[in-house]
Design a protein around this nucleic acid. Structure first.
Lengths: 211, 211
DNA sequence: CCAGAGTTGGAATGACAATTCCAACTCTTG
DNA sequence: CAAGAGTTGGAATTGTCATTCCAACTCTGG
């Protein structure tokens, strides 16, 4: 019935090489500013200055601020998942889980626990104000949760994890502990809460390990 | 050396009865609006309309928007802790912990998982933009965590919980699970994540119960 | 009751944000 | 190398926001 919508396909062809570069620069600058000052605390003029572009460029590539925010959401998701690889794709042992969570804790300490989680912050700010952002962020969390669950599934398939374990629920619980721990750590300016939250859930997962 | 600062004491005396009523009405209206639309998404004119007051009244009682936000932070903390009582003050059994978390989950379902946690949302939005709000929110989380820890301490003192359990860390982990679970549930519009996150941590606490 | 502190209304101010517009420019493609 | 599509600069527009100001009003303590 409908012709293929293909938001990405033909659109992408209409971008010339410098155009794509400008577009990327805008997203990166916006992501950085929105991470530090929130979406509401980041104005288009701010982004113009940071990216070195004019207003018309932003509106040319993203339509309006909402469109830019959506692009930032997906950029941050891609970036966050990419930077966690390859650890993220091999979470199939208790040690791997601990090592993965530790790198996040160390990174948090390295920046003085400022800023919290890029995705969590966007989620909290946009969940009620931008329905399409909420949808995208829901997908972001799904993309994040999937490799955690996959690792647990592999452990269970190999017989290293009890059949009794609800690995999907455990993966969700670990992601929640990460988010809640990051928020508490951000507010308290100490990674302790994050470490304790994550440690508790991994200890719990470990209780399902068969000897 | 210093005369008693007493920010509350003498200040409070300078408020006449209708003044106090107006002040409270402003805070309640602001809290409601900020919960649904965020701090950045709530303007002074919005609050004026909702509370039925004029601009001068808001500035008279709170100085500026920042002052009002601070008042809202503390109001929401008081309100949230009060509404969780008396359950919150008797978290000294696994059943009590489960029952307490369940009521929050049910309340979440009742409002379609809209809005997340009043305190967590404020924390995420204000942590990097308002230092004094961050400090107050840190204290808010401490106030919330304390009764959880106290309950666990009582269990441990009574010998119901193993000496090996780090009850302070477990209390932090449970609060983090609540926060992270609420955020995921808000974004996904389903209380499942909250229930799973909280359940995992309480299960873990239960593993320290001595038979 | 009556002074003075506390309270209120509402307009005015100044800043700044989001967005639009269009002319001028540059890249790609045939 | 020439369209024509894509890109860019910068000013103009329109709306809204936080905040101020002050005159008029009302409550409370003595």
């Amino acid at each position: 019935m409908n012709p293929p919508v293909d938001v990405e396909g033909p659109e992408r062809r209409r971008l010339t090489k410098p155009g794509r570069k400008t577009r990327d620069r805008i997203i990166e600058a916006a992501a950085e500013l929105m991470f530090h000052h929130g979406v509401g605390g980041t104005s288009i003029p701010d982004i113009q200055a940071a990216a070195g572009v004019s207003a018309s460029q932003i509106y040319h590539y993203f339509g309006d601020k909402r469109g830019l925010v959506l692009a930032v959401v997906n950029f941050q998701t891609d970036t966050k998942l990419d930077q966690q690889r390859p650890l993220l794709d091999h979470l199939d042992s208790i040690d791997a889980l601990r090592a993965w969570c530790d790198t996040a804790a160390d990174r948090q300490d390295a920046m003085g626990c400022v800023g919290g989680c890029e995705i969590g912050s966007l989620a909290s700010e946009l969940a009620e104000s931008d329905p399409s952002a909420r949808t995208d962020l829901s997908a972001s969390f799904d993309r994040w949760e999937l490799p955690i669950r996959s690792g647990l599934v592999r452990m269970q398939t190999r017989g290293e994890l009890s059949e009794r374990a609800d690995v999907a629920a455990l993966a969700t619980a670990l992601l929640a502990a990460i988010q809640g721990g990051m928020l508490l750590s951000q507010v308290r300016r100490s990674s302790t809460a994050y470490r304790q939250a994550v440690s508790a859930v991994i200890d719990h997962i470990e209780s399902y390990v068969v000897p």
